[in-house]
Design a binder for these strands. Structure first.
Lengths: 226, 226
DNA sequence: CCCTGTGAAGAATTTCACAGCT
DNA sequence: AGCTGTGAAATTCTTCACAGGG
């Protein structure tokens, strides 16, 4: 098998395959066919096979894919077989909810520090996260990656401050940013950014329920996973 | 201009155009060229023009696009020129953070009720949201859309309950669901679903920073807005 | 027979490049 | 000159369809 260029859509679907496979593994399912996996996600069997085949011949003809084996492989591809340390900036409503979110730890992401610019927040302990994390002032962010070993940053500050904080994160050695602020960040090419803008998602929903196309009785696909 | 089929990627980008345009409008910018708008979002000028031209000849040759005019048009296309009423199910960490999130109201989404299955939650008032919203029991959801006029539902419950609650929402008349649970929902074709799975996004970030491709020194695009 | 991996065909999307308006 | 709207070309992605293994 050749190491071709992997399509971007394939990479996005990998996470959904993994999610479903982990669920199957939890239910004790041993093997799954491309058809079964695809049906659960609204994809064709050919799509599933082609996606997975980019990374190696994981399937077993006549059998399908071994669930536990495939889970391991996809985790390694996505990089979630290792533990990632992350810092969070912004201890407002959203930031605190994110800090308390169990899903991060479950996927191997460890929050090592939380920062905020508001002096009233600084020094407060965070509820919900098992560790004894205390909010620090954002000025202490410099060097965080070196000192704490963090390579990922979660950005949960207002739009106006997002670019500035992103710059500080990068200066501190952060290599990947999960951006909850409703702006497009400008970053050097070696830094990765994934955006999570709730307003944007809401607009997609609004469009599909009552936007221009829906108003014209268009029987389009109404599912948007990503 | 003919009413052709609009590409899905175009629809997704519309939200990002709008976000940028609203920011420009706020700074008093009157007109913007496809080049300027594209650069801010990492797209080509041709892409921007083609996307916008699907919906009408909004541009003015030699001038560009009038910002306020275009904001209005895109809002109408997306359906965010109207107010949408929504219910939220799940008053845990995430649910409460979402209820307090100002961005919803700012985009014209009005939260009219919040539900939870935990009896300890029921009856508690929600902090952060200006209204006097009290958590109700999820059994009261039936008929919510009729009674309160809600057409959108925000699903912030654990994965195990997500499908069941989605079914109840649909029975209650909800037509669009924003799903924060890490599962793919099965819904009738006339119901729209947009998923927001933080674990999935985190995996995308992990992949780009240290996954299989990154490990091989691949100089791919590291930006994922959506 | 059931299932995967894959070349080839087909469909969708992006980029190019240029006519035409200001 | 500067900029849009748009066919046509180029590219990317998905589906088809079948050879071959279990």
């Amino acid at each position: 098998m050749k190491r071709a260029e992997i399509p971007v859509p394939t990479i996005k679907r990998l996470s959904f395959y993994l999610r479903r496979l982990e669920e199957c593994a939890g239910r004790g399912v041993r093997t799954i066919s491309s058809k079964q996996l695809g049906d659960a996600l609204g994809l064709t069997d050919a799509q599933v096979r082609k996606d997975l085949a980019y990374f190696g011949p994981f399937g077993h003809p006549g059998i399908g894919y071994r669930v536990k084996e495939l889970v391991q492989c996809i985790r390694r591809i996505l990089g979630t077989d290792k533990t990632w340390k992350a810092v969070l900036v912004g201890a407002g409503n959203l930031g605190r909810a994110l800090a308390a979110y169990r899903g991060f730890a479950r996927k191997g992401f460890e929050l090592v520090a939380v920062y905020d610019a508001d002096p009233r927040m600084v020094g407060q302990p965070l509820t919900g996260c098992d560790g004894k994390i205390v909010v620090r002032h954002v000025d202490e962010l410099a060097g965080a990656a070196c000192d704490l070993g963090a390579r990922l940053g979660i950005l949960a500050v207002p739009a106006e401050q997002a670019q500035d904080v992103a710059d500080r994160m990068i200066a501190a050695g952060i290599r990947g940013i999960m951006n909850f602020a409703p702006v497009s960040l400008t970053v050097p090419p070696e830094v990765a950014v994934v955006g999570v803008d709730l307003a944007v998602r809401l607009e997609q929903l609004s469009f599909r329920v009552g936007g221009l196309l829906a108003a014209e009785g268009n029987p389009d696909s109404l599912q948007v996973e990503d």
